[in-house]
Design a protein around this nucleic acid. Sequence first.
RNA 1: GUCUCCUUCGUCUAUCGGUUAGGACAUCGGAUUUUCAUUCCGACAAGAGGGGUUCGACUCCCCUAGGAGAUGCCA
Length: 557
Amino acid sequence: MGSGARLARAGRAGGARRHSRRAAPGGGRRGRLRRRHLLTPRKRHGYNPSSNRPSRGNARPPGETAMQVRVRYAPSPTGLQHIGGVRTALFNYLFARSKGGKFILRLEDTDRSRFSQDYVQNLYDTFEWLGVKWDEGPDVGGPVAPYIQSERFDLYREHAERLVSLGRAYYCFCGEERVAKFHSDVQDEEGGAEGASFGYDRHCRNIDPAEAKVRAASERHVIRLKIPLGETTEFEDELLGNIAWKNEDVNPDPVLLKSDGFPTYHLANVVDDHLMGITHVMRAQEWISSTPLHVIMYQAFGWEPPAFCHLPMVMGEDGRKLSKRHGATSVDEFRKGGYLPEALLNYVGMLGASYEDGRDLYPLADLERLFSVEHLKKAPAVFDYKRLEWFNGQYIRQTPDAELAALVMPWLEEAGIAKKGDAAFEAAVLAAMPLAKERLHYLRDAPSVMGFLFAEPPVPAPEEFFPKKFDAAMTRSALAEARALLAARFPASDEELEEAYRARATELGLKLGDLLMPLRVAVTGSRASPPLFGSIRLLGLDRSLARIDRSLAALGS
RNA sequence: GUCUCCUUCGUCUAUCGGUUAGGACAUCGGAUUUUCAUUCCGACAAGAGGGGUUCGACUCCCCUAGGAGAUGCCA
């Protein structure tokens, strides 16, 4: 198969190693060494892809090398983009970038009952926000367009029929009601599933093909894949090694073409991956059990399957597949929660993967360079919100003040603090950035951290002003002292002011904090605030004094 | 139930048969400090269990246990 050095192997480290390719089964997390052996060519079916590739689906635009990696993210617009999807997309993207290949977006909108255009929009918005771009896709086009499955409708029936005429698939006339009863037992997990049957019973498999064809012309039907019985299907997973399934254990004769004429994921996925010249299929491990089924389809079509790489899943804290009940999982929620896309990308990029020992912060560009299947883990990873929060803080602190000020503006506007397009206000926010920056864990913290600089905070309850062991009267006189000192010394440096207060405190037999806490609460409206003198400087002496007087009054006489 | 995959600190991870098993987050303690935060320092904390192979096993093999996923005319 000389020319069989094909797409699927593109970007691998070459065929230099040709010893045992077989991954050792079972245990050991030391997959690295083993995986190296996977770089050897795999068994092929002596099939030359280019001869079989339809003209519309030539994945190799002229001028590009035959070995180019082509991977895709193929979401179904039936929900908001979530962490799991982003992870899959990101890893595909990184793989493509690291190999100088193409990253493709394909919309798998074959589930008409759950489809919504809003979700398509959400998909675009999400990845635009994240800054992850595809080389080919519905919006940017490409050599194997269209990239929306509903626009490739005819292709799927064509291919399903082809499988029928090949004797590898068949018409099925069983109603959904009949089939449903085979699944009912799966629901009661624990219970008496003794001898329960699962999946379809292959009822229509042996209808005479000629008769079936006639019936199909008038009767509502689906097309099912005829799983060859008595065989074993195996494939080499780039990450997991050799995986073998007895055909009896694969989903019995799954539906390929639904009764509404749309393909199921299985059909559309295989047909499009082939036609679009996809070389590597990287997807979450939840897909692994349908991979043998896909391999059987490739074989039935006489096509060379792509390389498969099943990524470790992302779990919630309870160790189960990440879902809504674990908290925020849609990217929208993270966006609205004040996360930076860079932080999310960095964090998600490290779930189930590692790059350089001892490093945590990786800008996207570095990930693009460093990504490698060899550094992927096999075990699932738990999504840790606390760790993400840390990443977010890191990226916030790395963001230049001007940029951060702009990012924070929508939150200030929403809190009613900022007026849109007010240049003076924007300048003030920028000026406050050095003080606020290291106090922001999320962008949404901006109003609570710096709001007092712009809007008059309510006067706190008297106790809020009290230094330790102080009562109202003591606090009031301390605040009066602080006010007098401020009025007298104000346009001084922070150091000078602090020295002045320290000296005065000593004179009064107080601690520095006893003088400054009431002042802080009066000026900022809170016991926790950015540095006091800096805040006063931003606020201006007059406004500060006014707040102090207000507080003095509230503390009584 | 069946099949498949997985198994290092609470969490994310490093370890390519020989290490005091390293780092990060979290937690706790300390330092800096006008509060909070940041930052810095320190502490706590791991090879699921049992058998092999080997001079030597977290690393290789087997078994057990545990976890997860799949078992749809959803993807």
